[in-house]
Design a protein around this nucleic acid. Structure first.
Lengths: 191, 191, 191, 191
DNA sequence: AATGAATGAGGGTTCATTCAT
DNA sequence: AATGAATGAACCCTCATTCAT
C-alpha cells in the first residue's frame, strides 16, 4: 500500500474516532505508521485529505451499487436495490459522510464534490435513459436533470434516517417504503 | 441592539466570511464593536454561539416561507412558492446552514439539526395534510414521512444549482421546472 | 519598566549570550519574565527587535559622546574625545554591534539604520560646522558629507581593533593615534 | 563545471535572493540542478558553504582592483580607481559581503573576516608604501595601519551611498568627490 | 457590566539531514 | 558518486480564555 493510501485510510479512521476538529496531524501519522513530515509530502494540510476520502467513498458507493444491481430484475426492484445500496452505505459510514460533508463545507473544495460524484451521476443517468427507452418511466422526465434530484433525494432520506433520527428498525422500513412510493410516482413507473 | 445580539449577528457575518475554523473570537468582537472580554460575559466559548445563530436561521426560514405563501393560490403555485422560498434561502444563506451543520457535527449534537428544522417540518406537514384532505394529492402519501423527503429533495436540488453547478440562469430555471414536475408526479397532484 | 523595554533588554542579553541564530523567542521571554504570547504583542518576529536594539545603542552612543565632550577643550582634544567614546562603546558592546550589523543585514530593516543614526549625524554635523566657522578646519570640507565619512571611518577603525584583531592594548593605542593623525590631516586642522 | 562549483555559485545566488536564514538547502540544490542528497557529499551543512563563497569573493576583489589599476596613472587617479573598484564591488556584491559577514558572525569565526581581506590589505599596503617611498604621500603615515583605515573608510562611504541613501546619481558623484578630497588631505598627497 | 492586556498550552509546519537504492 | 523519499526534532506563532482594573 502506498504512503498516500495509508494516510487516507488512517485519516478516515482517526476522523471517525475523534472528529475532524479534534484530530491532529500527529494522530493521523501515528495511525498510518509514517513520520510527521511524510504527511506533508502528500497533502498540504489536514483538511486537504478530505477530497481524497470523498473519492474513496464514491468508489465504495459505485462498488456497492454495482454489486447489488441485477440486470434481470424488475425496474421497481432495481430501484429498491439502488436505494438499499445508498442506505447501507449511509448506515455503515454515516460518520464518514458527515465528516466529508462538514469538512468539504468548511473548505474551498466544494466544487470538487461534483467531480467526485460524476461516476455515480453518469451511471444513474444511463440507468434512467434505458428504462425510459423501453417505456418504463414517463417520457416527460429529463433523465440528466432528474438523476441529480433522485440521488439527492435518496441520500437525504438516508441521512434523515441514519444521521438525525434516533434509529429504529421499523421506522426505517416505513420511511424506505415511503421513499420508494414517492420515487414510483415521481418517475411515473409503468412496470 | 443588545450586546448579545451584536455578537450573534457579528458571528454570522464573520463565520460566513472566513468559516468557523478560521474565525477568531477577536474577529467577532472587532466586528461587533465590543471588547474581547465582553464576549465571554455572554457566551462561554466560540462554538456556543452556534445555537443562537441556529435560532435566528429558523426564524428566517419560517418568515420566508410564510411571506411567500398565499392561501388563495392554486396548490401547484403554492408548491412553487415553497420551492422558491427554499431556493432563496439556500442561495442566500447556504453558507450559514453549512456552518451550523458543521458546528453541530463537531459538537456531536447532530440530532439537534432536526430541532432546528422542526417548525418547518411541522408547517409543511400541515400543508400536505390539508391538501390531502381536500383530495388534491394522492391518498397513499404519508404526509409526515413525505415532509422530510420533500424538504430534503428541494434542498438538495437547490444545492446542486447554487453550489456545485456553475450558476447559469437558464439552467437554473430548467432544473427548477424539472423539480416541480418531479414533485407534481410524486405527490400525485390533481389540481 | 514597560514590557516592551523588558523584551528589548532581554533580547540584548540573550542575543549576546547565544547569538541571534541560536536564540529562540522562548529564550527571550523567559529572560524577560513574560509570557510567550506577550512577545508578539510588541514585536512581530524575533528579528524585528533588532531596530529597537539598535536605537538603544545609538542612545548609548549619544550619551557617551555628550558625557565625554568638553566645550572648552581644544578641537584636537575634542576629536579625541569623540573617538574615545566610539572606541569605548565598540569595545564594551562589540558583540551587540556585531549582532545588530548582522541582524539588520539579514532583514529588510536596512533603511531604518539611517533614521536610527540620524541624531548622531546631526550632532557631528553641528560640531564640524562650528569648527569650520571659527576657521579651525579647512573651508573646502563639506560638513554634511564628511560627517558620514568621519563616523564611518571611526567606527570601522574601532571594529578593526575590537572585533577582528586579537586585541592588544599597545596596538590599540597606536591604531588610535594613526586614526587621529589621519583625521587631523583629512580635516585640515589648524589648531 | 564540477558539482561543487555548481553548489557554491547556486548558494551565492540563492543567499543573495532570500538571505541566509530563509534559504533552504532544497533551494540551493534546485538552483544547482542536483539532488538533495548530493549536497551533503560536498558540504557537511548549509553554513559550511560560507568559506567557499568567501574565497570566491576574495578573488573577485583582487580581480576588480587589479583590472582597474593602471601603473602609469597619477597617484590621484590611481586612488580614484581604487575607490571605483570598491564602490563597484559594494554596489554589485554588497549583499554577498553582508551574508558572509553574517554567516561568520553566527559561527563565531569573526576573526576569519580579516583573512578574507588579507590579500587586499597586503596589496593596498604595498601601494601606499611605494607612493610614500617616492615621496607622494606624507612620511608620517604608517602604511600598514592606514591601509585598514582607508579600506574601512571607502567601504563605509560606499555603503552610505548604495545602501542607506536613496540612490541618486548626482549625489553619489558629490559624495565620491568629497571622499577623494578627504583622502587627498588625509594622505597628504603631493602629486 | 465592560475592558483589553496578558497568558501559555498546543499543534501545525518546516527543513536539515539520512539512507536505502 | 548520485539520488530523492523519508525522517522527526525543533520552534514559531496563534488564539481561546482569564483577570486585574
Amino acid at each position: 500500500m502506498s504512503k498516500e493510501e495509508k494516510i487516507i485510510l488512517a485519516a478516515i479512521d482517526v476522523f471517525r474516532d475523534k472528529g475532524v476538529e479534534k484530530t491532529k496531524v500527529s494522530d493521523i501519522v501515528k495511525s498510518a505508521g509514517i513520520a510527521q513530515g511524510t504527511f506533508y509530502l502528500y497533502f498540504p494540510s489536514k483538511l486537504s485529505v478530505m477530497p481524497a476520502i470523498a473519492a474513496v467513498m464514491v468508489e465504495k458507493i459505485m462498488l456497492e451499487v454495482k454489486n447489488r444491481f441485477q440486470d434481470s430484475a424488475s425496474l421497481e426492484y432495481q430501484i429498491e436495490q439502488i436505494v438499499d445500496a445508498v442506505f447501507y452505505l449511509t448506515k455503515e459510514y454515516r460518520d464518514v459522510f458527515a465528516l466529508i460533508y462538514a469538512g468539504i463545507a468548511q473548505t474551498e473544495h466544494l466544487k470538487e464534490w461534483e467531480t467526485i460524484y460524476a461516476p455515480f451521476y453518469e451511471w444513474m443517468n444511463n440507468f434512467l435513459k434505458q428504462a425510459q427507452n423501453v417505456g418504463n418511466i414517463r417520457d416527460s422526465l429529463n433523465t440528466e436533470r432528474s438523476t441529480k434530484l433522485i440521488i439527492g433525494l435518496i441520500e437525504s432520506a438516508a441521512e434523515q434516517i441514519y444521521l438525525y433520527d434516533d434509529f429504529d428498525e421499523e421506522n426505517a422500513a416505513l420511511q424506505k417504503q415511503e421513499l420508494l412510493d414517492f420515487l414510483h410516482h415521481a418517475l411515473g413507473l409503468r412496470k
